[in-house]
Amino acid sequence: MHIAEGYLPPLHAVAWTAASAPFVVHGVRVLTREVREHPESTLLLGASGAFTFVLSALKIPSVTGSCSHPTGTGLGAILFRPPVMAVLGTITLLFQALLLAHGGLTTLGANVFSMAVVGPWVGYGLYRLVRRLGLPLMVAVFAGAFAADLSTYCVTSVQLALAFPDPGSGVPGALAKFGGIFAVTQIPLAVSEGLLTVLVMRLLSQSSAGELIRLGVFARGNARQDGQQGDEQGQDRQRKRVA
């Protein structure tokens, strides 16, 4: 999913950085305002960034029998909202480049655009739409995570197709080529990530109701309706079970 260091021509690298900049700047403003109003949010946002980093390091079993990593953008967007995810995603991608040699610095803008901007916005948009239609929470969570994962790969395919047009059929041919390659692996992976996110959210709704209410995922009054166990005793029991 990460475009490797040096893979994009210089002009493309600059253009994708410019395209992602407004979203990241907007996210930085939202985050700065939040920290100014609630200084304790620094630690929670840092914890959210670390959670995003660790989530992207988990290995999910793929249909073909191999393993891959979830993008984590869908769950991140549902929990922390897309503007904050743009900043947390950028920090995570920077750390992945410097600590794991995943992605790169010249391709950071392109990776941010696909994974920290488009993925979270598409995933969150679909999640909100499904919730507004009155469908159950877990259906919305699955739809959000699935769409976030798949849209990330679609944007990556477009980025690669624009950088390397097919010699015979140009950008559309290259898009079919890169999209076709991704489709074989990424559609099953998007389904896998959707299922994993539903399972994680189910556990979180039982063990971390307070945090989810604080993040605004559940409305305070509707917490019980959203399938949570409200009492402290139940939360402690579930937390132990998760651990």
Partner: peptide, 10 residues
């Protein structure tokens, strides 16, 4: 795996 993700959050 779901337990791992939830544990990381908690």
């Amino acid at each position: 795996l779901a337990g791992l993700g939830a544990t990381a959050f908690v």
